[in-house]
């Protein structure tokens, strides 16, 4: 069964001019459809202003579509009665780690979500412990989140969502403010959760390197999904990606150029190992 089912959703932000009169609303989503099955690792790619963050907020019932519908685990996001249940099912991690932390102690921070949904005290402690262990931050449970590095903060933010036992985690550019080391830690945690605990991950990003290991990729532009498929399928369309002002991993470009100049390589090579293997197997 699909855990996320978005059907032709449209959403526009109302706009006002300097005098406060309503003007033409800004259309952020223009008929986006997306289905995700349980246990999938999905990346949504797009440059700034493509509507990807707006879409993410629809998955958590922070925004409700003007047209179309979003179902999370069978629950309609436009029904107020489901709002809390939906937010419990689909947790959300935001870009700025400082702005999403409520507490000054890591374990209290992770306990905030379970407290809100009325989990009994002993159960909260168990959840906090297992969530912090899952992201490898248990040793810091009594630290002040302000003193942690960006990557550590973001892992705490992931733990805070995990403590609510979600089936799905939506991450809105979680690595945009991190250094390469922190970025790698966060991605490793996400892949680990996805493989070991079967949590569905929706990762929103504009960093190509984060896309390669995902099951499926959706590319957004101007409020629409313009491409979707496996990373191999997406990156084999190098020219199209370039026209959308999106980067392609360097290895893929190299493979693409080699192919253009005559080497019979396959499309959508994503890692250097793969490229080496392909070249070695060529008989020239």
């Amino acid at each position: 069964m699909s855990i996320i089912s978005a059907k032709k959703i449209k959403y526009a932000y109302p706009r006002k001019d300097d005098e406060g009169n309503e003007t033409e609303p800004f259309v952020a989503l223009d008929g986006v459809s997306l289905e995700a099955n349980e246990g999938e690792f999905i990346t949504i790619l797009g440059h700034n202003g493509s509507g990807k963050s707006t879409f993410a907020k629809h998955l958590n019932a922070l925004l409700v579509p003007d047209e179309g519908s979003v179902f999370i685990d069978g629950m309609d996001t436009s029904e107020d009665d489901y709002t809390l249940k939906i937010r419990e099912t689909a947790g959300m991690v935001f870009q700025n780690p400082d702005n999403q932390m409520v507490s000054s102690v890591v374990d209290e921070e992770v306990g905030f979500g379970p407290e809100n949904i009325g989990v009994p005290t002993e159960e909260i402690w168990k959840r906090v412990e297992s969530a912090l262990n899952a992201v490898g931050m248990y040793a810091y449970k009594e630290s002040n989140p302000g003193r942690l590095s960006g990557g550590q903060k973001q892992r705490v933010a992931i733990a805070s969502v995990l403590a609510m036992n979600p089936k799905c985690i939506v991450l809105d550019e979680p690595t945009a403010m991190l250094d390469p080391g922190g970025r790698k830690d966060v991605l490793d945690v996400l892949h680990d959760l996805n493989k070991r605990n079967g949590v569905t991950v929706i990762l929103i990003t504009h960093n190509m390197e984060e896309v390669t290991a995902s099951d499926r990729v959706f590319v957004m532009d101007k409020g629409r999904v313009v491409m979707n498929g496996t990373p191999e399928e997406i990156f084999s369309r190098v020219e199209e990606m370039k026209s959308l002002r999106l980067d392609v991993p360097k290895v893929t470009i190299l493979a693409h150029e080699l192919k253009k100049s005559g080497l019979p390589l396959k499309d959508g090579i994503l890692t250097s190992e793969e490229l080496v293997r392909e070249i070695m197997s060529l008989r020239i």
């Binding site: 907020k57 958590n60 922070l62 809390l84 937010r87 419990e88 947790g91 959300m92 935001f94 700025n96 702005n99 999403q100 409520v102 374990d107 209290e108 306990g111 905030f112 979500g113 379970p114 407290e115 809100n116 949904i117 009325g118 989990v119 009994p120 005290t121 909260i124 402690w125 906090v128 805070s160 969502v161 609510m164």
Partner: peptide
């Protein structure tokens, strides 16, 4: 940002809230 993050984590006032450290 914080208001949105709190809402996303089901914060809805004191109603039905439990305590981690009662």
């Amino acid at each position: 940002d914080l208001a949105m993050a709190m809402e996303a984590r089901c914060y809805h006032g004191s109603q039905g809230r439990t305590r981690m450290k009662p």
